[in-house]
Amino acid sequence: MIEATAVGRTFRVRGSVVHAVRDLSFRIEAGEFVGCLGPNGAGKSTTIKMLTGILAPTSGRVTVAGLDPSRRRTGLARRIGVVFGQRTTLWWDLPLKDSFELVRLLYKVDREVFRRRLGELAELLDLGGFLATPVRQLSLGQRMRGDIAAALLHDPALLVLDEPTIGLDVVSKAGVRDFLRRLNAERGTTVLLTTHDLGDVERLCRRVLLIDHGRLAFDGTVDDLRALVPGETSIEDVVAHLYLNSPASPRTPPAPRPSGDPPSVTA
């Protein structure tokens, strides 16, 4: 489903070259559920942007759902779903169901297929109570469920989520996690998510990619990850240990943004 070969991404920041991602290679098969971990500024968001066609890599090759994201942006957009935890893709002033209708038209989903699909999603994500509510009036948990539904209306084979549980309360978090697990198990949708919440990783991801300083620092199961640091029992302590004892220092700064921009929270 995803194949990254020696992918590198450099940015020019005030004349000097910064390597946000370097020599990243991994493969994600259809049906996997993969979590992407890494400290702030490690290159996670840059990686996600390269996989979704927002950003072109400076070196190496990326293939997602059989397409080169940087060349086939619109083709890819129809095959994958993307959710940004920190910003919504919904229309702020429109009722949720109108946002869905627009997504249907943008992605050219057949009306009948859409009706059925929205019915399923509304039930699984429990959207029924606020389908007619304008997005700006939704709670963060409701909005996130709405965003996830919007990303899945065109039934993509791959769902990419950038920090989907950020800021959610315990109940909303559990709801989102439960949905993602079922989506992956029952529908076979491949899921790739980035997160700072290790609960997401422990409860959902069969496989973990740890990105640090733009490189792949670890690729394996959660149990393998735990085994990396003998003596630490909680996954939280294990990851903290790995972040603190990573080889190169200081950290690579996050992808540069025009001046005046608040530093991005995602890496």
């Binding site: 942007k49 957009a77 993307v82 893709t89 991005s264």
Partner: peptide, 18 residues
């Protein structure tokens, strides 16, 4: 457009097939 670039909403436009 510069506001969209700064706020990151241009990324949202780029993940849509339009």
């Amino acid at each position: 457009i510069s506001r969209h670039i700064r706020a990151g909403t241009l990324d949202v436009f780029l993940i849509r097939p339009a």
